[in-house]
Amino acid sequence: MRLVEYADRDMLAIDVANVLAGALETALLHHETVSFAVPGGTTPGPVFDALCAANLEWDRVHVLPTDERCVDEGDDRSNAKLIKERLLTNRASSAVFLPLFGGGTPEQNLAETETMLAPHFPLSVLLLGMGNDMHTASLFPGMEGLDAALASDAPVLTVARPETQPEARVSLTGSVLDGALSKHLVIFGPEKRDALDRAMTMPPEEAPISAVLNNTNVYWAE
């Protein structure tokens, strides 16, 4: 893990956008298409606002969520909505979006979605967020099925029903996230910094973020 600290969040957003653009550009030099997994939530929005203007061959970039709430795409809690509004705009509007959830029950199209995603692994570039509880994507501490989702032989996707959340979710599993070729984590505030410090001494079953910290670039601002 490599930790980079910033004086403010605006500076972090601009710098991380440049880092991600560089990682994508490098990947595009070696592959016809590249995969870019990104989180939802409030943290990545400013990064997306800067990254969407990057001068890349976005039509060769396949963007997917690290996880998705099982809600309609028009719902404000939808990660797809945030990604499309904040990232897949400007120059990045030509990127290809790969959804994790298309309606119905979470399990209904899981196998079909896994088949659709399979050609895009390993992930070329991964951007993650982390909660104060040390969850990442939708891998929550203590949730049913976490051990299976963190196993080395886990499938591509898992259905998460954490008791702390109002809806079911579909999430990339630990091995898929950890297998990304270029890994990046953005966190803000003292609580998440403390959570990161704790996670480094805890097993993934208690701190799921620890399953993906090896060789990850972490960016923090107050």
Rank of each mutant, 00 (worst) to 15 (best):
L29Y: 07
S94A: 15
V4P: 04
E57T: 13
D67L: 02
E73G: 05
K81E: 07
S94H: 12
A21L: 10
F36L: 08
L123P: 04
E57C: 11
F36Y: 08
L146G: 08
S171H: 03
A92L: 09
T105Y: 02
P190C: 13
G129E: 03
M143I: 03
A27Y: 04
A137Q: 08
R77W: 02
H30V: 02
G129N: 08
S93A: 15
A53E: 13
H184R: 11
D75P: 10
E5C: 15
L100P: 02
A168V: 00
K84W: 02
A221K: 10
H135L: 01
G102Q: 13
E144G: 02
R91I: 02
A211N: 06
N132A: 15
L28H: 04
K192A: 10
H31R: 05
A221Y: 09
R60I: 02
D153G: 06
G103P: 11
V186C: 13
A50V: 11
T42W: 09
L123I: 06
N55M: 07
P46N: 11
L177N: 01
T33M: 03
S78W: 06
T136V: 06
L20E: 09
A27G: 03
G103D: 10
N214E: 13
R91F: 09
E5N: 13
P65Y: 01
L172N: 01
L146C: 12
M143H: 05
G40D: 00
N79T: 07
Y219I: 05
E163F: 01
F188K: 05
A21P: 14
Q165F: 00
N109G: 04
V170T: 02
I209P: 10
M200N: 05
D10H: 15
L196K: 09
N217R: 14
E163K: 05
A54P: 12
Y6M: 08
V186K: 04
V156C: 06
G189T: 12
N215V: 04
A195S: 15
R60Y: 12
A151Y: 01
P204E: 07
P162W: 00
L117G: 03
D49A: 14
K81S: 14
L20Q: 07
E57I: 06
P99I: 01
E25L: 04
G142E: 09
R77M: 04
N109M: 05
V159A: 00
R2H: 14
D15P: 10
E222D: 14
E205K: 13
V19A: 11
V16Q: 07
D76K: 01
W220T: 09
G179K: 13
E112T: 15
Q165G: 00
N90T: 11
L29E: 13
A151G: 02
S171T: 14
D75N: 14
R69G: 09
G179D: 12
A221R: 13
S93C: 13
S35V: 08
P204L: 08
A149W: 01
L123S: 03
N214P: 01
L64N: 03
A195T: 09
L128Q: 07
V38C: 08
P122C: 00
V38P: 11
H184N: 14
D59W: 05
L196E: 11
P106A: 02
P119K: 08
